[in-house]
């Protein structure tokens, strides 16, 4: 991959969520590479709607013909260099065009359900699941990537929605704060 320009997130005002509420963080600076192949191919050995983690790189089957690699730049580069691809496969670095937010905490599914029509129940969307849907009316990819035994969701969308999507998800978390309702 060519030298990367300095990363600038589109989330310009990442206000922390209230105490006790699910935590929302901006992870847009992660290197993201989109791998596309024909439908039915499995160039990285990961099925559609599933994820795998290899050497610190998260591989997510986000569409029947598209996979997303997320991780540190060197790790993603090493994984791509070490993978032999058969047939026609496109690899596009989308680090600077995609936004990546992480929502973590026990009530994160309930918060997300306020702005997304997917069913985030553990049986329907377990750890390692992926899905795509509208989140606060923004077409987004969702990846469940639990951390330290707590539910955690990555939400990816076009970078231009950065601050809007951050604010919209932040808004859903407030009712789960330990200070809510305030007097």
């Amino acid at each position: 991959m060519a030298d990367q320009p300095q990363f600038r997130s589109s989330v310009t005002n990442p206000v922390a969520t209230p105490a006790g509420a699910p935590a929302l963080t901006d992870e847009s600076s992660l290197t993201k590479v989109s791998v596309r192949a024909r439908v039915g191919a499995s160039p990285l050995g990961v099925d559609f709607t599933r994820t795998d983690r290899r050497d610190g790189v998260l591989i997510a089957g986000i569409r029947p013909d598209e996979w997303l690699l997320l991780g540190a730049g060197a790790g993603v580069e090493a994984l791509l260099a070490g993978t032999e691809f058969d047939g026609s496969v496109n690899r596009i670095d989308v680090t600077h065009s995609r936004l990546c937010l992480r929502l973590s905490g026990v009530c994160s599914a309930s918060a997300l359900e306020k702005v997304c029509s997917l069913d985030f129940d553990d049986t329907m969307f377990p750890d390692g699941a992926t899905g795509s849907a509208s989140v606060a009316k923004v077409s987004s990819d969702l990846i469940r990537d639990d951390q330290d035994g707590e539910p955690s969701y990555l939400i990816l969308a076009d970078r231009s929605f950065g601050q809007y999507l951050y604010d919209a998800i932040h808004d859903t978390t407030t009712e789960f704060s330990s200070a809510w309702p305030s007097s």
Binding site: R63, G131, A133, S139
Partner: peptide, 16 residues
């Protein structure tokens, strides 16, 4: 007023 074959685009999902 009955069965109709129609095309849909899964614009926020699988994009197909």
């Amino acid at each position: 007023a009955g069965w109709l074959r129609e095309n849909w685009y899964c614009s926020s999902g699988c994009r197909r």
